[in-house]
Design a protein around this nucleic acid. Structure first.
Lengths: 218, 218
DNA sequence: CCGGCAATCACATAAAGGTGTGAGGGGGGC
DNA sequence: GCCCCCCTCACACCTTTATGTGATTGCCGG
């Protein structure tokens, strides 16, 4: 291939840092531009080395990797960042993803796979530990959340609520369902009681939060 | 370990099927319950073998893997399904994820990793090819979509709109922003003009669709 | 300096929404 | 049969929204 992959490594544990650094240095196609125990000089290091890929530990003394990530991505959006950590709690994972991480490896990842991950992100992939991937997937899979309201709302009431969620007026809903506007009022009244709200807007927002979101109508 | 992992394999390519089947059979801890070239007898096979993990090819003659997946998950929600395909287009990937796939491997995955993936999903992970993982991550990251309205709405108008999206009444918004209710009216009037709507509800729905969703208030 | 726009406020009117009260018919369970 | 819930409708009354028509102030740029 053309150029080597320029890599920066941030890892506070000395043994780990030196171990990974050694491995990266020894790998053809990778150029280890630097290995540091903290991100306190992040900006100047970024500017000096212009890395393609950054291996970034989350837990470091001083500024954490999660704080450093958005800085990196705002300065050099094309730099690919692989997060490394011993923890895979939802909060960190999603914060990292939102901030633009391209990979997420737990610390128990074998060194050989770390090297593989570097090439992976460089080629446009997103290597991640399978437990992290599971968290991400679960986010998509319809939160089989228990519709707390699903049970209490009668089917007619659900019809009316769907009408509201499409932005319809009472009159429109009445026409669509072929009932009188007063009936619509009555249903809405009951829906409000059951949902514990007292306005159209609140009902819609609540319905959406609870997962009624079928907001594709029209 | 306790029991073996019971695996079903669906793959129409004979060589591939027999190759993977051989490997799975030879792996301690795995019990290959069956290997089939199509899913036409899916239900009876599921019932007969009660697999823990299913390796499911997407492109098969007759019913496709994407069609089979929701059936599997509705019948046996706890069964872990790993999708396999040569394609990684967004459409299929997300359809599979929404339908409950637990893993997604491209066909160029080395056999050894396929075996690893079986154990991975069984232990609650979600092995996926890094290119697939990238697609999934991008889904989270790109929301910085172009706010078509972001430009036309003045900052004060955005304040008011955010208030609406929190379900506030004019009066509440007025109080919160320390302005008169008539001023709120005026702003809302202008927002409606710019968004081409004519009710609170429409404005909120439109704002959400366009990505203003910061609906975390309160 | 002037025109344009953002932001503020006012007054007025009509339409839509929220709430109280009541009521009749149908179906299911006990 | 009686009770309860769902669905239907009606009328009344008040609040909130939507819209029309102005007006004042302040900032920015030509």
């Amino acid at each position: 291939m053309e150029n080597k992959v320029r890599v920066l490594l941030y890892e506070d544990n000395r043994d780990l840092r030196e171990g990974i650094a050694f491995l990266l240095q020894a790998t053809p196609g990778i150029e280890l531009a630097g290995a540091f125990p903290h991100v306190n000089n992040l900006k100047s290091e970024l500017h000096a080395h212009m890395p393609d890929v950054i291996l970034l530990d989350i837990n470091m003394p001083g500024m954490s990797g999660l704080e450093a990530l958005p800085i990196i991505k705002s300065l050099y959006p094309k730099t690919q960042v692989i997060m490394q950590t011993v923890f895979d709690d939802d909060e960190r994972v999603f914060q990292a993803i939102r901030s633009g991480a391209s990979g997420y490896l737990l610390k128990n990842t074998p060194p050989a796979e770390i090297v593989q991950a570097v090439f992976d992100v460089y080629r446009g992939g997103s290597p991640m530990t399978s437990s992290v991937a599971r968290k991400v997937l679960q986010f998509f899979q319809q939160p089989p959340k228990t519709h707390p309201a699903g049970h209490l709302l009668s089917s007619r009431e659900q019809d009316i609520l769907k009408g509201l969620m499409k932005g319809y007026s009472y009159k429109l809903i009445a026409d669509e369902l072929h009932i009188s506007i007063d009936t619509v009022r009555t249903h809405i009244r009951n829906v409000y009681d059951k949902l514990q709200v007292n306005s159209k807007t609140e009902a819609i927002l609540k319905a959406m939060k609870e997962g009624w979101i079928s907001n594709s109508g029209q």
